[in-house]
Amino acid sequence: MMTRVAITILSLLMVVMAIGQGNVLPQTGKAARLYEQRDYQEAKTLIDNCVAAEGKEDAYTWHVRGHIYKEIYKNIEGTDKKQAPEREIAIHSFLKCLDLDAENKFLEWNKTSLRFLSSTYWNDAVTIMENQQKEELPLAEELFTKYLRTMEASGNTSELEQRKLDFYKAFATANRKQVERMRSANADPTEYEVELARVIESHKKALKINADVYGSNYNYAINLYNEAAYRIENIPLEADLTRLILDQQGCIAIFEEALPIAKKAEELKPGRIEILKALRAIYLGLNNYDEFDRYNDLVRDRQGEQIIQKKSEKALNRDIFKNRLDVD
């Protein structure tokens, strides 16, 4: 309801604005009126003709075109909406207006519209990742790239690094879930290599933005470890020695890749039991018995500490409870 009211006000203001501008091109004025009447298809035909001819270099014409296409895009329903060209045309039109608008008359309005449209890219990308549709995952990345491009082009860059980080972490997770699903179905690693490559690539991009995030390092290392462990576990029972040696080499390379990343995670949060366990597992994968033994001891010590801590907490709670009873 609020949105409808706002659109009506907007339409009226746009027409008033058009009239207020003495030099509005007649075709543009007509298109703006059609927009106000919500006859977007007719408005689209007019404005497209206009930008192809006399309105080619007119900022206001491009601005009106952006709004017309934006409304058409918003009214699209169904799955095709994610790839609707209308959204891109609207963005292109607002950007064109930014270029031509030497006096910055439409600057803020253009920026706001571009931010709105780029947000739809972001939201579509997130929805795809949430829905876990394997075939659509590449589209999520494509939409995110468009989100970035639009935000950058419109000068809305303040939060982009954080957004990139959030997206790459989420994209790694979405693809990792696909990999795990395939592994639970005992798939051959070749069946999910595309998704796994996306997991790895996304982690690399996230770490490039900020190498000091514990979670990024830890998750990346675990993804690598799990892959190598899965491959080893799935070496065929009847694999001959040559195959065994080759498969082992491939997995060792993955463990070797995981090691420095896990060590970085340990450096960022030393003593965390989950990273100690990960390092224990990686060192065993690398057949490094000395380091395996060392981390095994560290894990046990940590587990012991946790048990003692829990017992102390319980004892403390008991004492508090007992004291209360005594007081009562």
């Binding site: 659109i7 990742m129 989420a170 993804n223 462990a229």
Partner: peptide, 23 residues
Amino acid sequence: RLLLLLIPLFCFSAVDGPQLDEK
């Protein structure tokens, strides 16, 4: 007022990270 809110990535939070499948 018409600005669209970005969907947060709650579903991909730290608790949703990979579990070590130690073997």
